[in-house]
């Protein structure tokens, strides 16, 4: 792939604006970008949603007619942008093969694929990319500051068939997590809402070894 001339980084007039490639004029997606500003500018990608984030847009219906188009765009993109995305609008029913091909070529070209299923969703993605430009990933990180009940519920509902009502039953009957772990099958079976399968699952979770020792 010939390294194309890297276009100068276009700085938006307002920090809250998405820069849109003029070739996207008339794209219905533009109507669906909300809550962030838009301005046109000469960029290699279709949408510049962050200082180092470029997004190419591809409608699969268009791709079906012009399969070469996206490759030329990717080539033009060269090595610009640290975060490179291909936003695919899945608007045909025979999407399996095109998505497979695109997956492969994007992997080679260091592009991450995002598939959207409507114009609204495309717009949503674009605006969220802009909004989250400098957001720390705390939201999707593992959290610690939850209260006791939430953690207990979260932990125990990992066991198949155990629901939040059961967690409440267990807590109120046995008191602590450690006591729950000591509960015998007979005790469990006598709790309201506990059938054989559930009791067995709980038994297995607490009393079966983590690993078999070879």
């Amino acid at each position: 792939m010939s390294s194309a001339r890297v276009p100068p980084v276009v700085v938006p007039a307002s920090g809250n604006n998405i820069i849109v490639n003029p070739c996207q004029r008339g794209n219905p997606v533009l109507e669906c970008i909300r809550n962030v500003g838009k301005e046109f500018g000469d960029i290699a990608a279709d949408y510049q949603v962050g200082r180092t984030t470029g997004v190419l847009f591809l409608s699969l219906r268009y791709h079906r007619l012009h399969p070469e188009y996206i490759h030329s765009r990717v080539e033009k993109l060269g090595h610009s942008y640290d975060h490179r995305f291909l936003l695919i609008l899945c608007d045909i029913t025979e999407h399996r093969d095109p998505i497979r091909e695109l997956t492969k070529s994007c992997l080679i070209n260091n592009i991450t694929i995002i598939v959207a299923f409507s114009n609204d969703e495309v717009g949503h993605y674009l605006s969220v990319y802009k909004q989250f430009e400098s957001k720390p990933p705390d939201m999707i990180k593992e959290r610690v500051d939850k209260d006791y009940h939430a953690i207990l519920r979260g932990a125990l509902t990992n066991i198949p068939k155990v629901n939040k009502t059961d967690v409440e039953t267990l807590r109120s009957t046995f008191g602590s997590f450690a006591n729950i772990s000591r509960a015998t099958p007979n005790q469990l079976r006598n709790l309201p809402g506990f059938g054989q399968v559930k009791v067995k699952n709980i038994e297995n979770a607490f009393n079966k070894p983590f690993r078999n020792d070879t």
Partner: peptide, 14 residues
């Protein structure tokens, strides 16, 4: 979105 922004090298398969 947040995940892909946090891990620039992460690719996705749909």
């Amino acid at each position: 979105v947040l995940l892909t922004l946090s891990f620039p090298r992460l690719r996705t398969i749909w």
